[in-house]
Design a protein around this nucleic acid. Sequence first.
DNA 1: TGCAATCTGTCATCCACTGACATAAATTAC
DNA 2: GTAATTTATGTCAGTGGATGACAGATTGCA
Lengths: 202, 202
Amino acid sequence: MGLRELKKERTRLSILDAALDLFLEQGYESTTVEQIAGAVEISPRTFFRYFTSKDHLVLWFHDHGEGIMLETLRSVPSDEPPFTALMHAVRAVLSDMQGSTPADAQRFLKLRRLLEEHPHLVGLSVARGADTERRMAELIAARRGTDPDQDQLCHLIVAFAMSTMRVGFECPRRDGTVTEIIDRMRETIALAERSLRPGWDL
Amino acid sequence: MGLRELKKERTRLSILDAALDLFLEQGYESTTVEQIAGAVEISPRTFFRYFTSKDHLVLWFHDHGEGIMLETLRSVPSDEPPFTALMHAVRAVLSDMQGSTPADAQRFLKLRRLLEEHPHLVGLSVARGADTERRMAELIAARRGTDPDQDQLCHLIVAFAMSTMRVGFECPRRDGTVTEIIDRMRETIALAERSLRPGWDL
DNA sequence: TGCAATCTGTCATCCACTGACATAAATTAC
DNA sequence: GTAATTTATGTCAGTGGATGACAGATTGCA
């Protein structure tokens, strides 16, 4: 990786950190892009070259997780039932979190606090989730050898899987460590698996 | 109802209709609020007194449906299992659609076409859905006599129910009549009920 | 008819976001 | 090491969504 890419990644994280801190300090709405840019000494125009929008700052984790999930989905043996495969994908995200640097863990926890204090921001995440679901439904349909337009079940499978994930990540009132969150997520997965009729997703 | 409220409702619908037509004609992004306001001969400022934002135009159906669902949820006997109660609420929305005026049906179909052509607008709807889910989870928790912060299952129940609804309304490639959509939705409900383990939501 | 409440338009302003262009920096080729 | 190329950054000007303040018009009611 060249010096250029390295520096780019560093400013990218600087922007993210500065923004998270500002948001938590003075609120999301009342923080302007100009302020964020000022904090990392770049022009507002440059900010938009790193993040397509102010909202995008909040979506970095979602994007990261989506990448891992899609990747996992493609690599998981195709004789596994779809929902099981999706739960594998979710667990892959958890593994990634477990192996993340302390700095990344900090960012994740800050993001969670932010979402807790500004519930309407959760909407941004689930909005992008709609996109993610469409992509996943295609993969699942391919797995099932069906046409996503005809096959309602593939959409339902994906929707249930993402619901499970979302519920698992939902903010418990007192925020814990990353490990606690991962444990909670595992419980939720178990709960979902218990709730579904065996073989429903075949 | 006074003359004032009547007139207000009429302009409200005029704005909505003009907007839907413009969106379908020339796209969502490339239609400005100024154009919409111009089409119904009001000032842009007044537009924002009828709809809190441009996006809000797309959410009128969601808001309407949410109202019906919450209302139904409160009136349904509390010895019914939560998921069953939620499916009743969904069916109440379908009944309302069945009894709607032709004009309303037209609006609904136009909205669907719009969402089909601009998938990213679906995000707006599911974003608001996150809000809706939180409110519903409280009702379900109350029903179950639990604290929504502790009880993961109540969130899962609501999330699964809303997923079912969303999948049911998802655009099939060729758009049909309102009746066809309602039938499709009923199938989806049946599919979801078949997928869940009996008694999972108790 | 006249008073009070409410609706509307105008104006000024903020902020997110984008295209165009010039400059500065890093990468590559020689 | 320097020149040429590619890419990142800043400046500037502009668009469009959204909000507060105020004045004038409209409606509802006594």
